[in-house]
Each structure stands twice: as structure tokens, then as C-alpha cells.
Nucleic acid binder design. Structure first.
Lengths: 263, 263
DNA sequence: CGCCAACTTGATGGCTGTCAAGTCAGGTGG
DNA sequence: CCACCTGACTTGACAGCCATCAAGTTGGCG
């Protein structure tokens, strides 16, 4: 298996998404959104400088979450929206009988915690899949600020709406797609999100286990493993444990759309 | 099959959710939220009288949507959030190959259209399953007003968050539950929502076809039909075409939780 | 070096989809 | 009023896909 170093391409690869310390030193010292290299992906999108400063003031707390630890748990009182500064999370819902459904995977620049707004208690668990860093945004102060800054309000509404649309996409996946379509959709989605963050579209390390992928996709871990093996035989991907290399993106897209041909 | 009349109980039944003209005459004339008997379920929840008046002003348009017609379609420019005043809708996402996934069923007092906020184009179709009446709420004016009325802002955020939590529930259903659990969950959900609207928890008319139920639950229509038949044999329900009578609510709840016993 | 979690691979079975035939209810026109 | 038609639904037989169970393999870590 190639080392992270071997994966380096002209762009950064997603196999190690902590930027080199050197180019990050300022941000390590200051919490400020204005210094955050994720501001184009995160809440500050489109804010003027003075508006961003006011958002900065809200985010007094930035915390590390170790791999395996929870950022919040279902039932816990809701207080913050969380912005992922670095790292990788999953959200899941546990049924009383032990079954659990992974409802999403979140990466740097994405927001967590919006499930808590409706009842003021969190409805799911958010667990770090690698050591991560997270900005705590006091929700009620965010609401107040978004009453004052129209752009912030609009953007926050768009983020929530995007989550709803994304969830509908997962419903389609779970309700209508076969194994291969689900896996292809999953890989293409990861690829696209890594690309948006300046990483390679084709090479990345999976942060989650086969079981977690399966839980998200409504499959058993063996089924995920078998699908990976089949895709490998068909030269669509090359996968070894967590290391994933997409060899034929168009091939994956065709699998997602293969039913179109009949229509 | 019993007529709608035969279903009348001390409470109104949901088999005919158009209130009698007499008790509704004022609201028929006036659009105003303050006169709407759904205000406890809809956006005005918790607003003071003067605030509600300001919300009233936004809702200049109220339209009828005939059974089978679309309120909006995927790809259409987003302009309004819609509040269902009476009737019943489904939302669905169409894949290019003809497969479609029903993402939800909406009834009086619920909001539609929030999928359009993120891109300013609607991401799904909303179709009336019976003749319905809908308030058109210009979204950008709603945003403006919610910058001025904190209660309205909070409530709108809660509505969006509730939609996210609901979607996660559907993911659990699609990803982890077997046929009988899905059907039981579906019936209990309908029952609970009819109850919240003052209708019978046990008797109602299904507004959707077996195929639409199946699409929502990730099943084929034959599977839905078989499950209904099995539930009927087990004296959990009595069903004839669209007419549904839940005979044993606790029994349905046990089916949803039967896996708990092992844990 | 050995342990353990994560993963792979094979054999088998059950659940749900598919295909097909028939029933039922409502609507239309004669 | 009845015959007919159509869409929605029910039921049965069968098949295929994915889950289950089981036995290894791999890689990381103490």
C-alpha cells in the first residue's frame, strides 16, 4: 500500500488533510474565520470583511475531538452548531435494539448539529472518524447575528436546505438503487467533495470502516467488500484496505446511470 | 366499505378532512393566518397577534391545487414556501430512467418547498393527492420578516430542522427495517399526524396508492399489499382499498420494537 | 511475536422483487 | 339500470439478490 507521501500529486491529496504546519501557523494561533482556509466552504461564504469579524466573535471556542470520540450524542441538550475545521465525522442514529444507521459523513468546512434545532436536543450522534478540530458556534447568537446580516441568514438557510436535498438523495439511494449503484454513488460523492477541497478526485483514504459504509448505504459489510472486489476486477477502482484509487470515474458514472440506456 | 359518513366519530375523522362549510365560513373568505384553524401547526405558531398580522400580509395568494396536479416541479425556479391549508401532497424525486422515489407525504399545516432554498431551484416535485388548498409565502419576504420577528425565525428554523430529523428517520427505515417494520412505522406515523389534526387515530383513508406507499418505503406495491393482508390476518388492521382501520395500535408498536426484546 | 480488529471470500438461505393471472371498485356510455 | 372498461389492488409461483454464517487473511500495534 502506498504511503501518504507516495500519493502526493500536484494538488494536495486527501489522504492527509491536515495542511503542513508552516502554511497554517497563523490559523493555528487565531480562531478567526477570516484566517480560516475553509471560509469559502463554511458559513462565512460571501460575507464582507466587517461581517466576518462579527461572525468571528461568536466562535470563541475551537476544540479538538479525538478519533472515536463524540462531538455530541443523541439526547444531549442542543447549544452549538459545529463547523468542522479539519478531520472527518459520521452522524448516526441508534435504535434501541442495537441496530444503527449512519446518516452521513461530514468533512472539513461542513456544519454539524442542525438536527438539534427542532427540539433543542440532539437527535443523532456525531463521532469523529479521525482526530478533528471543530469550531463551536453558539446557535442562539448565530440566530441573532443572522437577523442582522442578511447574507449570513441566506447562507445558513441554504446550508439547511442543502442538507434536506442531500437526505432526499440518500433516500433515493436506499429506496431504489442496487448494490453497485449505491457503491458507485458513494465513491463519486466522496470524490467530488475531496475535489472541492483541493484534494485528488481519484485517490483518497477512506476514513470509515466497511461496516460504516454499509450502514450508510443500507448494506452489510460483506456486501460492501464484495462490491469493492468486483469493481477492482473490472478495473474501475484499486482498493487496499482504507486506500482507494478510482481508476475509471466515467465507468462509475455509467454504473449509476446504466438504467438510462433502456429508457 | 363504510361511507365517510359512517366513519364519523366524536372527533372528526380524517377520511374527509375538509371541515364542514359552516364552521369554516370566515376562513373561506379571509386568507389570514389569524383566522386559520391550522395556525397551531403551521408557521404562525407562537406569534403574538400583531406579529401574526404581519405574517398575514405576506400571504396574499392562496390557491387550489387539483388532485394530480403539481404544486411545483423539479427544476422550477424557487420563489415560495407553501403552507398546506387543506388536502394532501406527496413529494418525489425522479431519476432519469423513470424510477422515482417518494420522499414524503405532507398534510394540512405542513410546509412544502424548502428543498428549493439551497439552489433557488426546486429539487423535487410536489403533487396533490387530493384537491388541496395552499398558501403561497414569498420566501424572500419571509426571510425579511424573520429577521424582524425572532419567534418566527426560530420557528422556521425548527421546521427545517424537523424536516432533517424526519429524513433521518426515513433513512433508518429504508436502511435497517424489514417490510413489516416499515409498514407499521408508516401507519403509526400517519395515525399520529391525523391525531394531531383532531382526526381519529385509528380510522382514515389512505390518500396514496399502494405503489406510492411502496415507493416511499422502498418496496414494490405487491409487497405493500401482502403486508397489509398479513396485518389483516393478524387482526392488527382492517383494510379495504383506501380505507384503513387500525385495530391494534400497540400491536403495531410491538412490531416496530420487536427486536428490542432480544437486546 | 502475537493479538485483535478489519477485511475478504465462499456456501447457503430467506426475503423481497418479478411476472402473471385474476378480482374489485368506480366511472362512462348505451 | 346495466354492461363495459380501466386503474388499483390482491394473490400465487418462482427467481435473484443480498444477508447470514463461517473460515480464513491482512495489517497495525503493544
Amino acid at each position: 500500500m502506498p504511503s501518504d507521501k507516495a500519493l502526493k500529486t500536484p494538488r494536495a491529496t486527501a489522504t492527509n488533510n491536515t495542511p503542513a504546519p508552516k502554511e497554517f501557523s497563523l490559523a493555528v494561533i487565531k480562531t478567526a474565520c477570516s484566517n480560516c482556509n475553509l471560509r469559502e466552504l463554511c458559513l462565512p461564504l460571501g460575507l464582507a470583511d466587517d461581517e466576518m469579524e462579527r461572525l468571528d466573535e461568536l466562535i470563541s471556542v475551537r476544540k479538538r475531538v479525538r478519533r472515536g470520540d463524540s462531538l455530541y450524542r443523541a439526547g444531549q441538550a442542543f447549544e452549538y452548531i459545529y463547523a468542522i475545521r479539519s478531520g472527518f465525522f459520521k452522524t448516526d442514529v441508534l435504535l434501541e435494539d442495537g441496530r444503527d444507521q449512519v446518516t452521513g459523513f461530514q468533512m472539513a468546512g461542513e456544519l454539524l448539529g442542525m438536527d438539534g434545532i427542532s427540539t433543542e436536543f440532539h437527535a443523532c450522534n456525531a463521532v469523529a472518524l479521525e482526530d478533528s478540530e471543530v469550531c463551536h458556534i453558539p446557535f442562539f447568537r448565530l440566530e441573532k447575528l443572522s437577523r442582522e446580516i442578511q447574507t449570513l441568514q441566506r447562507h445558513f438557510h441554504q446550508v439547511m436546505s442543502r442538507e434536506i436535498v442531500r437526505d432526499h438523495g440518500v433516500m433515493v439511494l436506499l429506496g431504489k438503487m442496487c448494490v453497485e449503484e449505491r457503491i458507485a454513488a458513494f465513491l463519486l460523492n466522496l470524490s467530488q467533495r475531496f475535489t472541492a477541497r483541493g484534494f485528488s478526485p481519484a485517490e483518497f483514504n477512506l476514513r470509515m470502516t466497511r461496516e460504516e459504509i454499509g450502514s450508510y448505504l443500507g448494506l452489510k459489510l460483506e456486501t460492501v467488500s464484495r462490491a469493492f472486489s468486483r469493481f477492482q476486477e473490472e478495473k474501475l477502482i484499486s482498493v487496499q484496505q482504507k486506500y482507494m484509487h478510482i481508476l475509471d470515474i466515467d465507468g462509475l458514472k455509467q454504473i449509476m446511470n446504466r438504467h438510462n440506456q433502456s429508457a
